[in-house]
């Protein structure tokens, strides 16, 4: 569904990604792990179109999209939950969710999507009239996931959804990811929580200094001696 080949990107004079290639097959849960500053978020931003690529190709559903503006990619069903949630703080939870279904492809099924989100995330339903900025970090992350689902994603890119969350919300986030996947949504999950992410996924890529240095099935990487030492400290 998503094929990234030789992706290069950066900011100003800093090159962050040099040669990133990976695949996210339809229906899969694919994970990208890596240390801080390995280029995980830059990869996500290049996929969503927030930054321009400097080389390589991004194909979604077989079509080349790396020159398309962000909004066109969302219309294709390529949806991202950005790092740090990025909710609209001075709007209510419900308004944030409605904005999630701004894309034309999602508007028709808006009510249905809203019901689904409230069923999956009852806590979000309780908070619907509150300003998003007034919620706790854990609640905000639930709203961000709900907002992403409102877009009716074919591929949901989640950039470090557990960053800075209390353990209970970390656990809940992984449960929700598994649930989303069961609903047939393809997921690309970027995580620092390496152990948990690897045990959940079909396939994983390890990013280091802007390059993919290791890849394989989640279980296989979990058993890898070098990776365990480098990232899990075991």
């Amino acid at each position: 569904m998503l094929e990234v080949r030789g992706l290069a990107a950066g900011y100003g004079e800093n090159a962050v990604l040099f040669d990133v290639s990976f695949d996210v097959p339809e229906g899969s849960l694919t994970v990208i792990v890596g240390a801080n500053a390995a280029g995980k978020t830059t990869t996500c931003r290049a996929i969503s179109g927030e930054i321009e690529t400097r080389g390589g190709t991004i194909r979604f559903g077989g079509e080349q999209i790396e020159r398309e503006p962000s909004n066109r990619r969302v219309e294709r069903g390529l949806v991202q939950i950005p790092e740090g949630r990025r909710l609209f703080p001075f709007m209510t939870v419900e308004e944030n969710l409605l904005l999630g279904s701004y894309a034309h492809r999602a508007r028709a099924a808006r009510q249905e999507a809203l019901d689904e989100v409230f069923t999956l995330l009852p806590r979000v339903a309780e908070r619907r009239r509150q300003l998003a900025g007034s919620l706790s970090g854990g609640e905000q992350s639930m709203v961000a996931i709900g907002r992403g689902l409102m877009a009716r994603p074919r591929l949901l890119v989640m950039d470090e959804p557990t960053l800075g969350l209390a353990p209970i919300f970390v656990e809940r986030t992984f449960e929700i990811v598994a649930e989303i996947r069961k609903h047939g949504v393809t997921v690309l999950l970027v995580e620092q929580n390496v152990k948990r992410a690897l045990s959940l996924c079909d396939r994983a890529y390890v990013l280091e200094h802007g390059q993919v240095v290791m890849q394989g099935a989640g279980e296989q990487l979990l058993g890898d001696e070098g990776l365990r030492r480098a990232y899990l400290g075991m």
Partner: peptide, 23 residues
Amino acid sequence: DVGRAIRATAQDRSAAALMGIDV
């Protein structure tokens, strides 16, 4: 929807783009 998109753009233009809003 468009009015909300205007307010969303005012609050966070890159997040707005991720919603499919043509900034």
